[in-house]
Simulated assay, not measured.
Amino acid sequence: MKRLNYFMLKDAKTEEDYKKVKSTVEKLDGVYKVDYEMDAEVIGVEYDDEKVSKEQIKAVVDKLGYTLIV
């Protein structure tokens, strides 16, 4: 089922940090769209929860060295 979730993104300081997270998450199978709001420290992910889970999204972001709060 298609879902839209907003996650708090910690440890990302610059626009480049957010772009790196966005491009990495967008590559996951089942992710349709990723947006971010730096001022609020939030990323929005539109995804198919039958193909990818919140935990899988968190795992790839954590591997980049950032903390995603699900």
Score class of each variant (00 low, 15 high):
M1F: 02
M1S: 08
K2F: 10
K2S: 07
K2T: 14
R3E: 15
R3H: 12
R3F: 10
R3C: 13
R3M: 13
Y6R: 09
F7K: 02
F7P: 06
F7M: 04
F7N: 01
M8N: 10
M8G: 06
M8E: 14
L9R: 00
L9S: 01
L9Y: 00
L9W: 00
K10P: 00
K10S: 04
K10Q: 11
K10W: 07
K10I: 05
K10V: 07
D11A: 11
D11T: 09
A12F: 04
A12D: 08
K13I: 09
K13S: 11
K13N: 13
T14S: 01
T14Y: 01
E15L: 13
E15N: 15
E16S: 06
E16Q: 04
D17H: 02
D17T: 05
Y18W: 12
K19N: 11
K19Q: 15
K20N: 08
K20Q: 14
K20G: 13
K22T: 12
S23Q: 05
T24H: 06
T24P: 04
E26N: 10
E26T: 12
K27S: 12
D29P: 13
D29K: 15
G30W: 03
V31F: 08
V31M: 14
V31D: 13
V31W: 12
K33G: 04
K33T: 11
V34D: 02
D35H: 06
E37V: 12
E37L: 12
E37P: 01
E37R: 08
M38G: 05
M38P: 12
D39L: 11
D39E: 11
D39F: 08
E41C: 10
V42M: 14
V42G: 01
V42H: 07
I43M: 09
I43E: 08
G44W: 01
V45S: 00
V45Y: 00
E46Y: 03
E46W: 06
E46G: 03
E46P: 02
Y47M: 03
Y47K: 00
D48A: 09
D48K: 04
D48V: 13
D48T: 13
D48E: 14
D49F: 11
E50G: 02
E50K: 08
E50F: 07
K51V: 10
V52D: 07
V52G: 10
S53H: 07
S53L: 10
K54E: 05
K54C: 05
E55G: 05
Q56R: 06
Q56Y: 03
Q56S: 11
Q56K: 10
I57E: 00
K58A: 08
A59M: 09
A59G: 08
A59Q: 09
A59D: 15
A59P: 05
V60N: 06
D62M: 04
D62G: 06
L64T: 01
G65R: 00
G65H: 04
Y66L: 09
T67M: 06
T67Y: 07
L68C: 03
I69R: 12
I69P: 06
V70G: 13
